[in-house]
C-alpha cells in the first residue's frame, strides 16, 4: 500500500513536470473553451435543445481529455517505460506489476478529472455554465468513460512494439475521433447519415453519455453507450492482462 501511494505520488509529480501532457490535459481544453466561448457565447438555442454552446462543450471537451489521456498519454508513457528499461528495473524489486499499472491509472484519471474541473470552473465563472444533471451520475459516467479509455491505452501499449509506433497509433485513432465523435465539432452539425456512422467511434459514446447525464437525461436513455464502454473496459483489461510485457 505504501508503494502504491509513493508510486502514485511520483507519477503525479512526473506528470506535472512533463509540459506536453499537462498542457493537453489541463490547459488546451480550457483554451479551446475560451476561444469558442468568445465566438459563440452561451446563449440558449433550440439547436442544442435549449442549451448554449458552452453547456454542450464542457462535457464534450471532457470527452476529448478522456480520449487523449487514454490513447496518447497513458499509451506513450507505458510504452516508453518499457522501451527505456524502466519496467525492467522495477521488475527486479518485489513491487507487484499491478501497482505500477494502478498508479498510472490513478494519476491519469485524477488529471483527466482535474481537466474537467477546470472546464467546469471556467465555464461557470465566464459563461454561466448550466447544469441540469445529478453530480453522482456525472461522476459515474466520467469514471466509466475514463477507465474504458485507459484500458484501451494499455491495450495499445501492449500490442505496439515501440514507443514510437504506440504514439503514432494513438494519434491515428485519436485525431479522427477528435473531430468526428462530437468532442469538438458538435454531433448536431454532422449530416444525419454521418451521425449514424460515427457511432463506431468509441469516443462518440463518451460524448453522448456525458452530454446526456449533464443535462439530466436518465441512464435508461443511454444503455447503448454504457454497454459499449463497459464492454470496452472489460475486454480492454482482459487483453492488456494478456499482452502486458516487461520489455
Amino acid at each position: 500500500m505504501r508503494s502504491l501511494w509513493k508510486m502514485t505520488l511520483v507519477e503525479m509529480k512526473l506528470f506535472l513536470r512533463e509540459p506536453a501532457a499537462a498542457f493537453f490535459t489541463l490547459f488546451f481544453p480550457l483554451m479551446v473553451l475560451l476561444i469558442f466561448g468568445s465566438i459563440y457565447g452561451n446563449a440558449p438555442t433550440p439547436f442544442f435543445g435549449g442549451y448554449g454552446s458552452v453547456d454542450v462543450s464542457v462535457p464534450a471537451y471532457t470527452a476529448m481529455i478522456i480520449g487523449s489521456s487514454g490513447l496518447i498519454g497513458l499509451t506513450v508513457a507505458m510504452s516508453m517505460y518499457r522501451e527505456r528499461g524502466i519496467l525492467r528495473r522495477l521488475r527486479a524489486t518485489p513491487l507487484h506489476p499491478l501497482t505500477i499499472l494502478s498508479a498510472n491509472v490513478i494519476v491519469n484519471f485524477l488529471m483527466t478529472a482535474l481537466g474537467m474541473l477546470f472546464l467546469i470552473f471556467v465555464g461557470k465563472m465566464v459563461y454561466g455554465l448550466r447544469f441540469a444533471g445529478d453530480p453522482l451520475s456525472v461522476i459515474a459516467a466520467f469514471t466509466l468513460s475514463s477507465l474504458s479509455f485507459l484500458a484501451l491505452g494499455f491495450v495499445l501499449a501492449g500490442v505496439t512494439p515501440t514507443a514510437r509506433t504506440a504514439q503514432v497509433l494513438g494519434m491515428v485513432l485519436f485525431y479522427p475521433m477528435l473531430f468526428l465523435s462530437g468532442a469538438t465539432v458538435p454531433l448536431e452539425v454532422l449530416p444525419p447519415k454521418m451521425q449514424q456512422y460515427v457511432l463506431v467511434l468509441p469516443m462518440t459514446h463518451v460524448v453522448k453519455l456525458l452530454r446526456g447525464v449533464w443535462i439530466g437525461e436518465s441512464w435508461s436513455q443511454h444503455w447503448t453507450e454504457v454497454g459499449v464502454l463497459t464492454a470496452m473496459l472489460v475486454i480492454g483489461v482482459a487483453i492488456s492482462a494478456k499482452t502486458f510485457r516487461w520489455e
Partner: peptide, 13 residues
C-alpha cells in the same frame, strides 16, 4: 539487490 547492465529511470525523476 540488483544493478542491471541496462535499465533506466524516468528522465524527470
Amino acid at each position: 539487490g540488483v544493478q542491471l547492465q541496462t535499465s533506466a529511470l524516468q528522465e524527470r525523476l
